[in-house]
Design a protein around this nucleic acid. Structure first.
Lengths: 166, 166
DNA sequence: TATTGTTATACTCTATAACTATA
DNA sequence: TATAGTTATAGAGTATAACAATA
């Protein structure tokens, strides 16, 4: 053992023991939001593993459900997905007979997106699981009021201009 | 034009006009935190473009600065980076003479990580830019008190058990 | 037997450019 | 000329498995 010279209770010039000083990142908004998002996504994925959907596909199904007949670009834009990256996602959903593309009646360049009857049933399961997951978030955040405050703070972070004090 | 039959002011059976109904994702914690994180990371990256660092490298430099002599696994763990993915990051920093690996005095398996003198200077610039960025986040969130509340809510989301009302 | 650092590898997400058909 | 969808491709970030050296 090379550590015979080390004072077990204290520090030594090279190589300390014990927990790291993480103060520089612990109070950083950018670091903490990144960590929280990563952990929440993992939790979400493990909870929704039964649906066998990639992260982006949940949003696509939900938005088509409430906005049937819209074109791919519109759904993609609303989710922040580029149209080139949207194609393999909607292909995968269509291959599973959850959605379908119909030619638009107004613009022969675009596809109108719809859920299949099977897709409608499928989305009901997502609604329920989503509601359960969000309810758990609400509990963690300390209630509905706290949850709304949290969402409001998130939207303030993304807002175009920095608002002054309320 | 195929849309002669469409009532410009209202809706038609297939293909509506106007904004999408995004209520299903707008009030979702998981969707909003993901969107906010993505936008904040872009903003951070554009603001820190001058440093030519990948996202993970900021945290590594900050943690080595406050924890010199720690081994790779410790720094990686604190940042949620797997040790296999840590290697190319620390290699890149070392190639730029910002950090260096020294053999540990206690454990010949591990490397002790240090900033070079140049790395120390470099980190000062990061501190300043970070402080500016975080100060901007504070303004957006509505002040220091609101910021602390936001960080507290983030930590509640990641907490192991769901806490009851405070 | 377990841990540290490393390599290799794969998979996802994201980003850009270019093509086609329509407008 | 611009837009919608598509293809191809490249870059990050992240995941696991396996290995050598050391504990």
């Amino acid at each position: 053992m090379w550590d015979a010279m080390v004072d077990a209770a204290g520090k030594e010039e090279l190589g300390e023991a014990g927990a790291l000083d993480v103060s520089s990142i612990e109070h950083s908004v950018i670091f903490q939001i990144k960590r929280t998002q990563a952990l929440l996504t993992r939790r979400f994925q493990s909870r929704f593993a039964g649906f066998d959907l990639r992260p982006g596909e949940y949003g696509i199904l939900l938005l088509i459900a409430t906005n049937p007949g819209r074109k791919q670009t519109e759904i993609a834009d609303a989710l922040g997905i580029q149209r080139a990256n949207f194609v393999p996602l909607i292909n995968s959903l269509e291959r599973r007979h959850l959605t379908e593309r119909r030619p638009s009646l107004h613009d022969r360049r675009s596809n109108a997106l719809y859920l299949t009857p099977y897709g409608e049933d499928f989305v009901q399961g997502i609604y329920q699981a989503e509601a359960t997951f969000e309810a758990e978030c609400t509990v963690r955040l300390g209630g509905a009021k706290s949850r709304e405050a949290f969402l409001a703070l998130l939207s303030r972070l993304v807002a175009g201009a920095a608002p002054t004090s309320p």
